[in-house]
Simulated assay, not measured.
Amino acid sequence: MNTMYFTEEHELFRKSLQDFLKKEVVPHIDKWEETGTIERFIWKKFGDMGFFGINYPEAYGGLDLDLFYTVIFLEELQKINSCGFAAAMWAHAYLAMTHLNKEGDEAIKQKYLVPSISGDKIGCLCISEPSAGSDVAAMRTTAIKNGDTYVLNGSKTFITNGVYSDYLVVSAKTSQEESHKAISIFVVDRNTPGISATKLNKLGWRASDTAEIAFDNVVIPASQLMGEEGKGFPYIMQHFALERLIMGVNAHARAEYALEYAQQYMSERTAFGKTIDKFQALRHTFADLYSDMILCKTFNYAVTYRLNKGEYVVKEATISKLKSTKMADEVIYQCLQFLGGYGYMEDYPLARLLRDSRLGPIGGGTSEILKEIIAKMVLDKKDYKPAT
């Protein structure tokens, strides 16, 4: 299966990334999980290695590589037992930076994208609000034009990198029209007066800084508008395909990690005179879990292949996230059970992994919303279109 999508160069990249994570990241994970703060030096090291520029143009310091390098990046980040650290990295590289690359003009790319690729600036994407999560069009944050500036007011919540980022990619309504056609996208410097952030206390993803952000009469230059005014909603929608596929890949990767760990444990743990991987009930349960993981992994690779060719795979990416995140929760829950009492101990990885995985069916669009999107596309024949 792998040789269909991954070349020798891909596998060399995977080995290089594994070595880097083992040496530079893993020794710090427990501290970052405890403090909830990822130290700044690691961002620069990621940038120096080119990991933030995998899919971005060489003109801005990127490597302009195919999406299967991104898959490798995501998979290996899921196998160091800190989904919070992984989220901080991919939210910067594939949420905030995607908008800079696609909608930012040349000046914005030079000011924000170039240092984002090098690891000198950290970004976050601000869409969800306290009263508007999955219903993006219901957002209340406004950006009212005043001469050659916009005045930003409102709040955002559940923002990954929301405390320590250097800039914010913000969605806001630029007219009073009660419609998705009123939404625009801006890039805003963190040190602009009127911005405040409150760190949220989460069940999992403890290493990442998730925040609620308030904008109180924040004045930003009109040049910070990205793309066309009023086109923010289709910009957001077209990037959701990548975000959902990312979360699907994350899910199959952490499920695979849980299965690998459980398999090793079961081959060493003895009960009634034999290792527990010899008991039929456990063997068959493991076989079911492994099969579900492989089905999702295979599907996710196929969707990545189509997205890499430029196809608009919003339906398939939505299915990827819906099914893969549910699968990961079920796999990790059962893998913890395989470990018995040890699975419940913080000294073993499954307790943290279980907490971290639970965000999968919630973040980036809840499973309930994803089912409705799929139903609209299949039953109502709704045809979502990319921004033009």
Score class of each variant (00 low, 15 high):
227 G>F: 03
227 G>Y: 01
227 G>V: 00
228 E>T: 07
229 E>F: 00
233 F>M: 06
234 P>N: 01
234 P>Y: 07
235 Y>W: 09
236 I>V: 03
237 M>N: 09
238 Q>M: 11
239 H>W: 11
240 F>I: 15
241 A>Q: 03
241 A>C: 06
241 A>F: 03
244 R>Y: 12
248 G>Q: 01
250 N>Y: 05
252 H>L: 11
252 H>A: 05
253 A>F: 04
254 R>A: 13
256 E>M: 09
256 E>R: 06
263 Q>S: 15
264 Q>E: 10
264 Q>P: 08
266 M>K: 13
267 S>T: 10
268 E>D: 04
268 E>F: 03
270 T>I: 09
272 F>K: 12
277 D>Y: 01
280 Q>V: 15
283 R>P: 00
284 H>N: 09
286 F>E: 00
287 A>I: 09
294 I>N: 09
294 I>R: 10
295 L>R: 14
296 C>H: 04
296 C>F: 00
297 K>H: 00
299 F>A: 02
300 N>D: 14
305 Y>K: 15
309 K>Y: 06
312 Y>D: 03
312 Y>R: 06
312 Y>C: 11
319 I>R: 11
320 S>Y: 00
321 K>A: 14
324 S>Q: 09
324 S>V: 04
326 K>G: 15
326 K>Y: 15
329 D>P: 10
333 Y>M: 03
340 G>W: 04
342 Y>M: 12
343 G>Y: 01
343 G>L: 01
346 E>L: 05
348 Y>W: 06
350 L>R: 12
351 A>M: 14
353 L>W: 09
355 R>Q: 11
355 R>S: 08
356 D>G: 07
358 R>I: 02
359 L>P: 01
361 P>N: 03
361 P>Y: 13
362 I>K: 12
365 G>I: 08
365 G>D: 14
365 G>P: 12
366 T>I: 09
366 T>V: 05
366 T>S: 10
367 S>G: 12
